[in-house]
Design a protein around this nucleic acid. Structure first.
Lengths: 214, 214, 214, 214
DNA sequence: CATGAATGAGTGTTCATTCAT
DNA sequence: AATGAATGAACACTCATTCAT
């Protein structure tokens, strides 16, 4: 309304800008720290490494994060959330795309999510267990959720007569383990789109049709 | 042989006995340390914990092992060797037992090996990665060998027309991941013989026949 | 004088008002800081606590005070001056009130001064010594002045034949110590007027007449 | 019994000697640390100062004491105990020495105790309050005990008709404060035996007979 | 061989002070 | 003048390893 910014408006503008600036800085530190953690692992990473990588002073780090542990947890939560979001449900309606195509899409999406965040994936897959009970609990819960989602899906498909009546729980764990292994491999092997397709196809073909010649 | 123990003979006897004693002590420390490492993880384990568990003095520990890291590597190597030994080959001769039965036996044997050594398994699966590059390399090599064995077996079976022509490499990784996941689960769930059978059946049924209803 | 406010005159007016404003701000910060220091002690008090209590920004604090130490010294000087002012002399003229009444008044006035400034008293009595040599010197000087005043008074009274010829120096220290102890007690016990009277009476009766029954 | 030391006896001897050695070392560190604390005060004293003064490594310090705080508390407790021990009771029996002589002895003994441990006295009197709640509580308790002892003694003497019926509590605080002040003075003034006698006499004369000329 | 007291480099974290806005 | 984000020196404490006994 007022063509001239009143002091209060200016104040608001200032603090808004400051908050944005702060958020940008924070993200910057978060991102650079992720790389360090991912390279050296949690324990081998010193707070000195973090602040050096971020180009800030030691004290500044503690302005943004409560502790070395806290920033690690934040990084961890980020990936976990992204993976959760990248999984959708299976559509079993009349006009739904064929099951195989739907599954293919889901598997590819999940693999791509990890592939696109190699640093944090490395973090989760590699430096994690035994770190501290909280991390362990968080990861266990995450695995649990993934497993439950898989097992439920299989259950559903069984009720619909789409799949055989194998032990849904055990099969779900097998699938989860297989996917994790492919994610792990993609970490080191560069992980082109081609590689992703190959992994996806192998997983689907194996798990849906089995190895045996017919 | 010599009726009179010459000084040298006596020395030999002494040193032989001493060497045996030494070996026994060493094993004792290894075993007890394994338990501690397995409980608390590598980083949370202090050398103090190790010597206390072994009932020896701090200095004595360094008489037997070069460092905290060295004893960990030794423990690691032990399991890796045991698992290697517990896997045999597939017999493709005329009078060989049916493929499915052979595979079933191998999978069960491998799962049982890990199940019977929960401490060292926990060590390998949980506190290992990211520790130091040597550990990582060792584990990668181990995985590589397992994978190669699996891939070769699949290759063979493909040549024999026993299994379909899926991507042998990718399938081998899937199987490896699935097995690892079941091993991991068995760690926490007590792992009765029944559980093992269930896991084995699920793995075989899934991987050989696939999920799809026919 | 000048009918039109010259820029300089306007400047003066502005700066006068500004100076007054500044002084008011400063006092406000001083007063609030005193409370914090008194509650938590010098070392446990963070500059953050001070600026939070004063409702100013960190940087503003350093506009008014050179350092955390400087504001503490200023606070210290304030009380010391107030106590000095609250002590008068003993009137030994012909028509003067009786000595005992005069002394009673002085002691009560001193005790009341401390009682009425519990925060700064706590500061001086409790968090001060050992802080830094300057504080110690200041407190020592203050004590020295109190002691000198007491010793002189006793000396005078001795010359006038009003009191016995005890070691004036040593007696002065005893009195000072006793008063300090009562001040200290009053800090925690609320210190009603009644308590003050009781302390005053006990001090006077003890020091003038002694304990012994006659 | 056995003229030759058996292994176990030798072991005992070793560990006994070791324990003694340890105790000697500990005392050494304690003593040197006391001097540093006393010179610089608790807060200005760095663990580095302590280990440097004791001529040991940083880690060694923590072998003997749990923390900087812990060694301070130990030092504190030591003096407090010594002072407690240096005070006896007043003998009110038939053939007891005269009251004044008994009191004189007690006061002198207490003053001498502090005089003989200037470092720890300085510690208690100067760097103490506000440090941490535990120290404060300990000192308050100590003061409380001293006061109670004094007040009880006065009470007793009143019942025996030896002293006037002044407010025993208030008088006890006065005496305590006066003594503390003399202790404080003795810290800086070298504190010869003469000075002690002078203080003792002044305290007794003032408190027993009063200042007023008669 | 066995011991365990001694070591000291290295760690995460705090907080009085500065300075660009 | 006022702000508060940024700074970095300083700290107490840990723990794998050594070495005199």
């Amino acid at each position: 309304m007022a063509p001239l910014s009143s002091p209060s408006a200016e104040g608001d503008g200032r603090s808004t800008r400051a908050a944005a600036q702060r958020e940008r800085r924070r993200s910057e530190v978060l991102e650079r720290s992720l790389r360090v953690f991912s390279d050296k692992g949690y324990h081998a990473t010193r707070v000195s490494d973090l602040v050096e990588a971020a180009g800030i002073a030691r004290g500044t780090f503690y302005l943004y994060f409560e502790s070395k542990n806290a920033i690690f947890h934040e990084l961890l939560d980020d990936l976990l959330e992204q993976v959760r979001d990248s999984m959708g449900g299976v559509d079993t309606g009349q006009d739904a795309p064929p099951l195989r195509a739907q599954l293919r899409a889901i598997v590819r999406r999940v693999l791509a999510t990890f592939r696109d965040h190699p640093a944090v994936t490395r973090l989760v897959l590699r430096s994690a267990p035994g770190l501290d009970p909280d991390v362990d609990r968080k990861l266990a819960a995450f695995h649990g959720r993934l497993h439950a989602w898989l097992a439920d899906s299989i259950d559903n498909a069984q009720r619909l007569g789409l799949v055989r009546h194998l032990d849904a729980q055990a099969v779900a764990w097998s699938v989860l383990g297989a996917v994790k292994q492919h994610v792990e491999n993609a970490l080191d092997s560069g992980a082109s789109d081609d590689g992703l397709d190959r992994s996806t196809d192998a997983l689907l073909s194996l798990h849906l049709d089995g190895l045996l010649a017919r």
